[in-house]
Nucleic acid binder design. Structure first.
Lengths: 256, 256
DNA sequence: CAGTGGTCTAGACCACGCG
DNA sequence: GCGTGGTCTAGACCACTGG
């Protein structure tokens, strides 16, 4: 077959009116976008297997190799994972994934532990200007706001404030208690999958209240992590400001 | 051709004594390693073009597609970059690369600027135990240790201490002054290419001296970035501890 | 055993940069 | 025009998983 006997589905417009030239998006990008769309729309749900390469190739009228390139790109983004002999699966927020993809606090030996949590307070409210900016909400929208203390090995280490747009999380905090692994809960209870997060780190001084909660002196230095978590389509769904006592635990990153 | 009429160079041993079974490394991995080795050994230097896919494929007796997979993996690691119609090139520490790959401090508007630097002191010395651990040196080895203040828009923002193993940087600090863009200097003057870095972030209190240098109060919270920079072969080459005043500038990261 | 993904090849055409 | 990388296809065999 010539490079393309126009594959109908994806590229019905491609070269329909253009005998030559006219560079569209590459085929594998169109496949990528199609699959991405289905993930966003929850057509394929976290944990489930998606169709095989051959099936996708047949459906989209492209070669297996083209589908493979798209799939491998999505695997590189951690949206899918593949197991030889089994199939291709939609990533989910298991303990492990939450730990290694979205949690960067480790102990002196580099061991990662998911901390325990105790909720301090929780209420619905109108967005503050800052929250509206971070969550891209209109000035009058409602949010759920709650604070909690997090413990590593029984030692209070983090105080954090979390804000969620009520629109995506109806009944949150009033009908149910926030569990420890929030991302997994967002996914299972609300169908909201967190795919990426932007973080800004600064150093701040502990307030009186924080000092009391963490068992340290007021004014002691704390690491502030200001994090906006986003869905697959880049829409922000959670704003979290964490104040961490870094005397026993540190934030780690790898660059390059 | 059958999947492999044993390509001589890379896999002379592969299936030499094994009629079946015996899984070695995939071919594209062997190609990857061969190229990586040449980068480590400076056979191909930063900024230079490496041979074309066809040439490499011919040299290593594999198909163009196999070479391509290896090259694309190396591009994903930022060790190479490719320009259509031109060729494949070894990455170098340009201002841009230094800025976006190894520098994470940005202003309120997210704009990235490379700060100016003023060196405070610089001397050769025997390693401390901490330095020996970070740089993986024997207890009696010599290092160069220097401190500097860094300025964004004329405002002192960072105080940092940098330690280099003298072995890799003979004459550093005594015969030449440390320039502002260190990574580029390591590369051009010593042939040392920094390929990755591990960072640990904590919050600390400003010492009297730091407070004076940064124009803040003693005890004010500072962001400490403890960074070990490594070469292509993972050997550490620089240890840097930066104390940053994050009232005007922040550390940013992206996860997921 | 059949079906999945993983590796490898061969060859086509396209888009780009340069002489 | 020629050589580079970029996209796409077709088809082979291997390795793993499950029934």
């Amino acid at each position: 077959m010539d490079q393309k006997t126009p594959p109908d589905d994806l590229v019905s417009h491609r070269r329909a009116r253009a005998p030559k030239k006219l560079r569209d998006q590459p085929l594998y990008q169109q496949v990528d976008n199609t699959i991405r769309r289905r993930l966003i729309d929850n057509v394929w749900k976290p944990g489930e297997a998606i169709p095989s390469e051959m099936q996708l190739a047949a459906e989209m009228n492209v070669s297996q190799g083209t589908v493979r390139k798209a799939l491998n790109d999505l695997v590189a983004e951690n949206l899918l994972y593949r197991r030889q002999g089994l199939g291709t699966f939609v990533s989910e927020h298991t303990e492990h994934r939450a730990l290694f993809l979205f949690f960067s606090i480790v102990g002196d030996e580099g061991a990662r532990l998911l901390p325990e949590s105790r909720v301090l307070d929780c209420a619905e409210d109108i967005v503050t200007p800052k929250e509206a900016e971070r969550l891209q909400l209109a000035p009058s929208e409602m949010v759920v706001r709650f604070r909690r203390v997090r413990f590593f090995d029984e030692i209070a280490t983090i105080v954090e404030t979390i804000t969620l747009p009520l629109e995506h999380f109806p009944g949150f905090g009033t009908e149910v208690d926030p569990p420890n692994n929030l991302f997994r809960f967002y996914q299972s209870a609300y169908g909201v999958t967190v795919a990426k997060a932007d973080e800004q780190l600064t150093a701040v001084s502990a307030t009186e209240e924080e000092a009391l909660l963490l068992g340290i002196d007021a004014g002691a230095p704390l690491l502030e992590i200001d994090r906006t978590a986003k869905m697959l389509d880049e829409r922000p769904v959670e704003w979290r400001v964490s104040h961490c006592d870094t005397t026993k635990y540190r934030y780690v990153a790898e660059r390059g």
